[in-house]
Every structure is written in structure tokens, then in C-alpha cells.
Amino acid sequence: MNLLIVVAVAVIAGVALTLAAHGGARPAPPGTAPQALPFLGGGTPDTHAWQRFHFRAYSMTLLFVAFEMEMMFMYPWAVVFVAEGLKALAEMGMFLAILSIGILYGWREGVFRWQ
């Protein structure tokens, strides 16, 4: 019962403090248009700077996930394989088949062409 009262008081105090902080803080005045311009040393942009760019590390990430996940599961699987035999082999086969789709996709994307 005591614990319940303590929790209730803490929750009420938390909500009250949040509301007080929210109500008490004035929103910052919006900046003027010249201040919202991106800094280009006095120059001007043609477009927004929000743009799609190529995350060039992604192909390495793809390879890493594909091969590292394989190895991560193979060590514990090797222990289970001794006891379970063919069933464990089939399960690992399914798992590898799924991961190899990722490797095939990476192959299509040119991951294995080192430049």
C-alpha cells in the first residue's frame, strides 16, 4: 500500500512538473527569413539542402551482415548437429538459403567488384 502511494505521488508530481515546465516556457520567436538562410559565405542556394545521397558503405554492410550472421549461428549449431543430425542439417540449410538471397542481391549490386 505504501509503495502504491509513493508511486502515485511520484507520477502526479512528474505530470505536474512537466505541465508547469511546458506552460511556463515561452516558445522562441521564429527567426527572420535572412537568418533562416543556410550559411554559404554570403552566397545563395538554388534548392533545399535536403537531398538523397548514396550511402556508399551500404554494400560493405550488406556483406558483413550476410557472412557474419552465418558464422554467428554456425558455432552453436555445430554443437546441436552432433545430437540432432539430419534435422539440424536441414534447418541450417534453410537458414543459409535465406542468407544467400542477400548475397545474390549483393552480387547483382556489384559488391564483389572491388574498385
Binding site: L40, G41, P45, H54
Partner: peptide
């Protein structure tokens, strides 16, 4: 991919 065209300077550090 997206292109960003801007005039940079004359006071760009």
C-alpha cells in the same frame, strides 16, 4: 542522385 547548386562565397571562410 540529387544535385545541390549554390553560389558559395565571397565571404566563405
Amino acid at each position: 542522385l540529387d544535385l545541390y547548386t549554390a553560389r558559395i562565397g565571397p565571404f566563405a571562410p
